[in-house]
Design a protein around this nucleic acid. Structure first.
Length: 433
RNA sequence: GGAGAGGUGGGUGAGUUCGGUUUAAACCACAUUCCUGCUAAGAAUGCGACCUCUUUACGGGGGUCCGAGGGUUCGAAUCCCUCCCUCUCCGCCA
């Protein structure tokens, strides 16, 4: 949620900033007017309320000194005001609720350095990496044996069974088997070990309450993209960001403990409504995938470094796996609802010849913290909203695809990076059976 | 799932019997100052959050908040209802 005080103080700035990501001026005018009306009604109700309280106090005194007539008179007076107060209060509440609903729908203000643009076509590529690029080697040229899609490799080696997954849960729910399943486990274990030095490992619930989903900005806007269990008012988490951001909801954190950094491995569930039929083959887009997430609560001053650390760790894993990738700065129009600034990492997959998003590293400023009410107390100051940053390191389904395509050998086997050997029982070759 | 006990500020914890100077005590922690004087101890004062009005500013006024939401009342931490969570015991269970 954006800062209402900032909107009052500098409406032109806020409207202009939000216009960069497609919010219309008329929408903002409605909000500004609702806020004005809400406050006027609030004043009226509170004034009446103060009178009721004062009269009630006098009733108490009169009763004590047994001035019955006076007490009855004051009581009648108070009751009349109380009735008027009830009406004004209800109207103020209604206006306040409308205001909150509108504000919840409003996306975050993009950072000034975020590039202009309204669609992903306007995202800016910052850099590319591939093995040997530091010593001047060209982007790798991939052989014909690497130009095979991962779904073909997967069924050939018996490590990916999309038919079985579809039979159990419908399409886009992949089923991994044998070394393929173990590879996922290895990736998660390897990544969690890499982050253990600075990030507390969390294993959160995979379901969250509506209230929790609202804190991160996933509700009410993105309800159609998530799985709901209506009977219990639960939603399947689309990312570990959801539980991690809400872990300290409503709390005032000790400044000395910041930044608080956490990492979590979870399954992530996405309905991908509206994406049917588009880029959905194999593991390109799935309803359930594992992901290791990095997250931090921090002060505004710490946030840029915290975001840079997450980006660096995600890149370090891609480099350790030897997978070519590129870094994109998302343009204003392509940012997620809650984000003020986002960098995407896309891995190159030679078999399907595509760049696939495997990480999204975002700085939310205080947008999520305001919704979740997470604050810290600066030395000598009053409670201040924390900043939240997070990013994937990494989303494994697409990494899995990139690995088997990139490391496919002419004989059809796949030779995996050596860093994973300890997690694969020392073996890194997957051979046809 | 059943029975019982509980949920109060950053923390501990009174107040709930019997609604009305509770404007939420006290202690701890914290901050400032003083005294002492040196890896300490003591004293004084201050110290909640949120909303809103007002002020150039310092500040001041009003309102809300005692797990959440309703209700009764002139007036609710206190009485009533619903729900959530924690603890203890029982049942069930990987």
């Amino acid at each position: 949620m954006i800062d209402l005080t900032q909107l009052r103080r500098d409406p032109e700035f806020v409207c202009a900033a939000l216009a960069r990501r497609g919010v219309e001026r008329a929408t903002m005018d409605v909000i500004i007017e609702l806020d004005r009306r809400h406050r006027a009604l609030l004043q009226e109700a509170e004034g009446l309320r103060a009178e009721v309280k004062e009269l009630s106090r006098q009733v108490g005194e009169a009763r004590k000194s047994e001035q019955t007539t006076l007490a009855d008179e004051l009581q009648a007076n108070s009751r009349a005001r109380g009735e008027r107060e009830r009406v004004a209060h209800a109207e103020a509440e209604a206006a306040g609720q409308q205001l909150r609903d509108k504000l919840l729908d409003l996306p975050n203000i993009p950072s000034p350095e975020v590039p202009d643009g309204l669609s992903e076509a306007d995202n800016v590529e910052l850099r590319q990496w591939w093995p040997g690029c530091e010593s001047g080697q060209p982007f790798p040229s991939f052989g014909d044996h690497q130009r095979v899609a991962h779904w073909d490799i997967g069924s050939e080696l018996g490590i990916l069974d999309l038919e079985a997954g579809a039979k159990l849960a419908g399409s886009m729910f992949p089923l991994f088997r044998g070394v393929g399943a173990r590879l996922l486990r290895a990736l998660s274990a390897y990544a969690l070990d890499q982050h253990f030095d600075a990030y507390e490992e969390i294993r959160p619930p995979h379901f969250a309450l509506t209230e929790t989903m609202t804190s991160t900005g996933h509700l009410p806007k993105n309800a159609d993209d998530m799985y709901a269990i209506e009977r219990d008012d639960l939603w399947a988490i689309p990312t570990a960001e959801v539980p991690l951001t809400s872990m300290n909801r409503g709390e005032i954190l000790d400044e000395a403990n910041l930044p608080i950094r956490m990492t979590a491995l979870t399954a992530c569930f996405r309905r991908e409504a509206g994406a049917a039929g588009r880029d959905t083959r194999g593991l390109l887009r799935v309803h359930e995938f594992d992901k290791v997430e990095l997250f931090a609560y921090c002060t505004p001053e710490q946030a840029p470094a915290a975001q840079a650390d997450i980006l660096a760790r995600a890149e370090a894993i891609l480099q350790a796996l030897g997978l070519p990738y590129r870094v994109l700065a998302l343009c204003a129009g392509d940012l997620g609802t809650s984000s003020a600034q986002t960098f995407d990492l896309e891995v190159y997959t030679p078999g399907v010849d595509r760049w696939l998003e495997v990480s999204s590293v975002s700085w939310f400023r205080d947008y999520q913290a305001r919704r979740a009410n997470v604050r810290y107390r600066p030395a000598g100051g009053s409670p201040t909203l924390v900043h939240t940053v997070n990013g994937s390191a990494l989303a494994w389904a697409r990494i899995w695809a990139a690995l088997v395509e990139t490391y496919r050998q002419p004989d059809g086997s796949v030779v995996l990076p050596a860093v994973l050997a300890p997690y694969l029982g020392g073996r890194t070759t997957i051979s046809p059976r």
